[in-house]
Write a protein that binds this DNA or RNA. Sequence first.
DNA 1: GAGTATCTACGAAAAGTATAGTATTTCAAG
DNA 2: CTTGAAATACTATACTTTTCGTAGATACTC
Lengths: 131, 131
Amino acid sequence: MRQKKKSELLTEVELEFMNELWALGEGTVRDVLNQLPEDRNLAYTSAATILRILEQKEFVTSRKEGKRHVFVPALAKDAYQTRSLKDLSVKLFDDTPASLVARLVDDDSLTEEALGQIRALVDRRLKNDTG
Amino acid sequence: MRQKKKSELLTEVELEFMNELWALGEGTVRDVLNQLPEDRNLAYTSAATILRILEQKEFVTSRKEGKRHVFVPALAKDAYQTRSLKDLSVKLFDDTPASLVARLVDDDSLTEEALGQIRALVDRRLKNDTG
DNA sequence: GAGTATCTACGAAAAGTATAGTATTTCAAG
DNA sequence: CTTGAAATACTATACTTTTCGTAGATACTC
């Protein structure tokens, strides 16, 4: 019994587009294209193709509004973040989140402030579970 | 003045191979091939090609030993972990490590134990900095 | 030193991803 | 209506990544 299995991760360009859609909430091809940085010169039809692919892969849905399509994320950014972290963790950290964080907090470029925030997050989660 | 820019991230298969090399310390084409899971049926020449590419991209170096090449990681796993985390953080977490950790600790599948380890790591880092 | 196992070097097919072109449809304005 | 701007659908091209085959080199065995 073979599954499709294609791990459900976004390609580079797909992620670029999903990020804009997540920021916008929803949008047309034109909306997304306008949202891209100045120096990103992408043909309108390329953008349309990417959104069509995202719809095929069921990362977005669309409804028709007049003559155009309005695209809406079908997967929340949160959920995709979790999925990506899981993937990275499996591939590079032996599926051990703690070692991922270990690497993160070892990074010298991490600010004191960020560290404090991180601890607060962990503490809060621990309290909620046990309390 | 155009730079090479190709962000220095490993492709899927390249990462698969680097993981084996990191685990082995070093190895020949045959060594790496043997290290791969049973069901990963890859031709010997494919493995050789991948290692050649990794050498071109300077992720590994090699020395000749008899008629064969012994490949050695040129980049430590730690360093690549840091690089990957940075990349993920930029692409999906607004370059804010704290929000990455937030998502991580929100994951229900995370064990109490892992959470405790994570806090210990953060605490230790904070103490070292301030103390 | 001929035979065979195994290796490397190179090239290129096969598969996947990114970008864009052409043809057609849609809708709104004259 | 008819026309034209802008959208979609479909196809095609270019580039990247993954996989493998062929040819020739290297060394071990008898």
